[in-house]
Simulated assay, not measured.
Amino acid sequence: MLSYTPGDSLAHRLDPRTKLLAQAAFAAAAFVYTTPRGLAGFTLVAAVFLAAGRLSPVDAIRGYLPALPFLVAGPVVSVVEIRPWSVGVDPGAATGPVLASYRVLLVLAVSAVYLHTTPVRESRAAIQRLVPGRPGRLLGVGVALVFRFLPLLRADLRRVRDASAARVGGEQGLRDRMTVVAAAGIRRALGRADQLALALRARCFAWNPTLPELRFGRADAVGLAVTAGLVGVAVVGVVPV
């Protein structure tokens, strides 16, 4: 699971608000130009994002392994044509789904740079400054809890799976193995939730805590220029000339 890694890359030095805006602009432009030529260009842009965060494509994709089967399933299912009394295969029908899946993969790669270079507290501070009022505070808290809670749940499931394999669980059927891992995972998730609730009460959880100060620097000028360029590209693609 991707998480924040301290570093001194260009992306590490950017204000989290700049990175959030750049992500949104990249996703918008990629959805406008979902063509082979357009996605080829956005592949280069995504590579620039990865280089700015000093994150390898392999590590970025590895962080989203649970999502990859769904990205592959779309094109595979689309080629199957169910006809009366027969089932056919139309390879040409996979073109659109393949492009759409690759577009999502590029967006995930760019979001991986954000997760790799942004501390959780800064993410919460950025969201609360971008979304004013109580909705922003609620959204900031939710994002912070997900970033901290999800890696723990995945680690718990991994430990349960390894423990089951060590106890010759691999000789059981797939359904039995899934039942053991799912039941143990749910129990641990509920236990984690109880611990989280107790920790929040013990720390006198507040809606408006003291968050880190965010400040735009010189490096953000580059990030905002890239964001403006991506927004311009998206607008040109949407607005008829």
Rank of each mutant, 00 (worst) to 15 (best):
P132S: 02
P132T: 05
P132W: 00
G133Q: 00
R134V: 00
P135D: 00
G136W: 00
G136I: 00
R137Y: 00
R137I: 00
L138C: 00
L139Q: 03
L139H: 01
G140N: 03
V141G: 08
V141S: 07
G142M: 11
V143L: 07
A144W: 07
L145P: 12
V146Q: 09
V146Y: 06
V146R: 02
R148Y: 04
R148L: 08
R148V: 02
F149I: 03
F149R: 04
P151G: 05
P151C: 08
L152C: 01
L152S: 03
L152D: 02
L153N: 02
L153E: 03
L153R: 03
A155T: 09
D156Y: 10
L157R: 11
R159P: 02
R159H: 03
R159D: 06
V160C: 04
V160E: 05
V160Y: 01
V160N: 03
R161L: 07
R161D: 14
D162I: 10
S164K: 03
S164D: 07
S164E: 08
S164Y: 03
A165F: 05
A165R: 15
A166H: 05
R167A: 10
R167W: 08
V168C: 06
G169P: 01
G170E: 12
G170A: 11
G170H: 13
E171S: 05
Q172L: 09
G173M: 04
G173P: 05
G173F: 08
L174R: 15
L174C: 07
D176S: 10
D176P: 02
D176K: 04
R177E: 12
M178R: 13
M178D: 14
M178A: 15
T179P: 10
T179G: 14
V180M: 12
V180I: 12
V181F: 05
A182L: 15
A182Q: 13
A183N: 11
A183M: 13
A183K: 12
R187F: 09
R187T: 12
R188V: 03
R188W: 11
A189M: 12
L190F: 15
L190I: 12
G191M: 07
R192E: 01
A193W: 12
A193D: 05
L196G: 05
L196E: 12
L200D: 12
L200Q: 14
L200K: 10
A202Q: 14
A202T: 10
A202P: 15
A202W: 10
A202E: 14
C204F: 14
F205Y: 13
A206T: 04
W207V: 01
W207D: 11
N208G: 06
P209T: 02
P209S: 07
T210V: 08
T210W: 14
L211E: 13
L211M: 09
P212K: 07
P212D: 06
P212M: 09
L214H: 08
R215I: 09
R215T: 13
R215E: 15
A219P: 01
